[in-house]
């Protein structure tokens, strides 16, 4: 009788502790999550075997794969559309996410390739509930630029949904533009604008 009672207490304590212990091991902190992604990205951008137009497609594919391991494009696209996201069906959401991801890829990989990240300094992280901000400093030429990543805790861990460079927030800026367009135009109209932009960027990208 005495033994079984202490066994029950023991099992109870183990379960009780287990509740605290498990999440600590399961989820990496925001900086811990960001570091390998950004290190890998810097490595790809500086890899001599991937430089030049010959390796363009291979390089971009690898960069995109790396970005997607830390950046949540679905969340970005949802936020960029704001309230309108709730008014459209799953098929439209998928269509939009695909086009918008393509746009971000076209626009920003090109920009990333122009940057030569020498060193990324991790200044700190702020966590509130399921959101977090990671502040980094990036050297560009002689200047240090503050770059902040806004993250959300997802089943896959902390994932980035917005970037703030020197006070300018990427997804928020596009959200403002889309809202202004949607005041006059329909969702289908907006989709067409994005696809036209993608087409013209791809045409110009190949020419250069």
């Amino acid at each position: 009788m005495k033994t079984s009672k202490s066994t029950v207490v023991f099992i109870g304590v183990v379960f009780f502790l287990g509740m605290f212990v498990q999440p600590v091991f399961a989820v990496k902190g925001p900086i811990e999550m960001m570091k390998p992604v950004l290190t890998k990205l810097t490595g790809l951008l500086n890899d001599p075997n991937l430089q030049g137009d010959v390796h363009r497609d291979e390089r971009r594919q690898k960069i995109m794969e790396t970005i997607k391991s830390g950046f949540d494009f679905h969340e970005m696209c949802k936020r960029v559309l704001g309230r309108t996201w709730r008014d459209i069906d799953d098929e439209q959401r998928e269509h939009f996410t695909k086009s918008m991801t393509k746009f971000l890829e076209n626009a920003y990989i090109g920009k990333l390739e122009d940057y030569h990240y020498k060193k990324i300094e991790y200044v700190g992280e702020t966590i509130r509930d399921d959101r977090a901000v990671v502040t980094t400093m990036v050297e560009k030429g002689n200047v240090k630029l503050p770059v902040r990543y806004v993250l959300q805790l997802t089943p896959q861990g902390w994932m980035v949904y917005d970037i703030n460079i020197e006070g300018l927030t990427l997804v928020k800026n596009y959200r403002e533009q889309f809202r202004s367009i949607l005041l006059k135009d329909s969702f289908t109209g907006l989709l067409k604008i994005i696809e036209d932009k993608n087409k013209s960027m791809e045409k110009n990208g190949k020419g250069s």
């Binding site: 936020r79 309230r83 709730r86 959101r131 901000v133 902040r148 806004v150 927030t169 928020k172």
Partner: peptide
């Protein structure tokens, strides 16, 4: 600046 980023509600 960090507060603004954490608080901003994109859906509202």
């Amino acid at each position: 600046a960090v507060d603004d980023l954490l608080n901003f509600d994109y859906m509202d």
